[in-house]
Every structure is written in C-alpha cells, then in structure tokens.
C-alpha cells in the first residue's frame, strides 16, 4: 500500500489520540533512521529533530541495555514517553498529571493495529490481467526462437497491474480460438514500438493460424 496512506492514517490516529487524551501535548512517530513517519498537528520540526538527535545520542547506551523498549522522562511540569512500536519510535509528551505509561501502552496497541488493518486493506493484485488486441507481425529468420516481442508499454502495464517485476510469458489467442503460450520480451526495434504490434515467430503463427496484419488477443500467462 502507498506509504502516504499509512502516513495519513497514522497522522489521524495521533490526532485522535490527542483528542481522546487531552493530557497529551504532542506525539509523533519516527523510524530508527531518523525519518518522521507521522506527527500530530502540535508537533514541530525543531522538537522532532531534537528528539531524534537525543535518541541518536542514546544509541550506545540503549545497546548495552539490549535495545530500547521505552524511555520515560518525568519532569516537574510534564512527562515524555518514547517507546518502540513496530520497529519505529513513538514519542508522546503529556501533562504532569497524565498516566503516560498507560497512554504509551494504549498507543503501542493502537498503532500496530492500525498498521495491520491497513495491510489487510491493501488491494490484492488480480490473478489475470485483461487481454490486449495486438496486430501480428511475423518474425522470420534462421535465428528466430520461440519468444514473441511485445510493446514495452503493454508489458509494463501488465507488470504494474499484476504487481510483478516483469512479464516473462504470455498467452496468445487467435480469433479462431487457437491458443498458444510463448515467452515474451520487449520489442527491440524502435520503429515499431508503441504501435500495438506483437512480433510472433513464424512457427507460432502457423500454430495459431494467423498471418501478418491480423489481430490476436494477448494476455500475461498465469503464474
């Protein structure tokens, strides 16, 4: 799922947490590498940067204690808790009267739950991509193998839709109903790129009973 969606959801969560617990003055989430993931409306950049700087300063100390679980600071006028949540840090500052341990515990339940729900809502890639109608161009020659050549744009669309790194094999169907499955690669010839052409080796054309200039339906082969 898009990281922006996580950020928006977590920002809202932190703002809601502050609405529910007015004792909270500010809260924000940052990674161990010092990247702010989410922050409520009260969090300032200076505060967040200084907090990350202090955590960096405590790194060796935390290592000798076995890594940081929670850092609680109790001052005469307020409190601060920094706790580890899903491999990130959640910093929460609150008024003196707040039960910060409780607030931090609640946040440590809510934040991972939100992240888990968001993961659950992530769209599942469809099993099959829609087919494209492409114009047949025949590949002839002694060194022509069995691989078809397809427009890179079409292959890219399928890869994105199916959440695959690349499309290595396609299913080709002629309008007569003949089908075959071939390995696929991008068209190398710049002159015919972007023209909706599929270059099919002669042998495969014969199997499909198609000729140059005819249309075929092409889609990525199932995994």
């Amino acid at each position: 799922m898009d990281t922006d969606v996580y950020a928006v959801a977590l920002n809202n969560t932190l703002n809601e947490l502050r609405n529910i617990c007015p004792d909270i003055s500010t809260s924000f989430i940052f990674t161990k590498d010092g990247v702010v993931v989410a922050a409520d409306e009260a969090a300032t950049e200076a505060t967040m940067n200084k907090t990350m700087g202090s955590l960096h300063g405590l790194q060796d100390t935390m290592a000798s204690l076995g890594g940081l679980n929670t850092l609680l600071i109790d001052g005469a006028a307020g409190k601060l808790a920094i706790s580890t949540v899903n491999d990130m840090y959640l910093a929460t500052a609150a008024a003196k009267t707040a039960d910060l341990h409780h607030i931090a515990s609640v946040a440590r339940v809510i934040v991972p739950t939100i992240l888990k729900i968001l993961d659950g809502l992530a769209p599942t890639p469809p099993d099959r991509a829609p087919s494209h109608q492409l114009i047949v161009d025949t590949l002839t020659g002694f060194f022509v193998g069995s691989t078809v050549e397809i427009d890179p744009q079409v292959l890219g669309q399928w890869a994105e839709l199916l959440d695959r790194k690349e499309i290595g094999e396609v299913e080709i169907e002629a309008f007569s109903g003949e089908k075959t499955q071939c390995k696929a690669k991008e068209i190398g010839d710049e002159k015919i790129k972007g023209k909706g052409i599929i270059r099919i080796p002669e042998k495969a054309c014969k199997a499909l009973h198609v000729k140059k200039g005819e249309l075929v339906k092409v889609r990525p082969a199932a995994d």
Binding site: K50, T61, S64, L65, G66, T70, I73, D74, G75, A76
Partner: peptide, 29 residues
C-alpha cells in the same frame, strides 16, 4: 548519557526540572 539526554529532552518538551528517567531495554532497565 541517560541523564544528559534526559535533561536535553526535558528542555525540548518543556518538562521542567528532571525528576525521574526510566530507560527500559530488552534485557534490563
């Protein structure tokens, strides 16, 4: 180090004079 960084953070968040710091790790605190 904990005292030093605790005092810095107390200043950053306006927590006033430091009373207590609890640093809880995976093994000890």
């Amino acid at each position: 180090t904990t005292l030093e960084e605790g005092e810095k953070l107390a200043k950053v968040f306006g927590l006033g004079d430091l009373n207590k710091v609890v640093l809880e790790g995976a093994r000890m605190k």
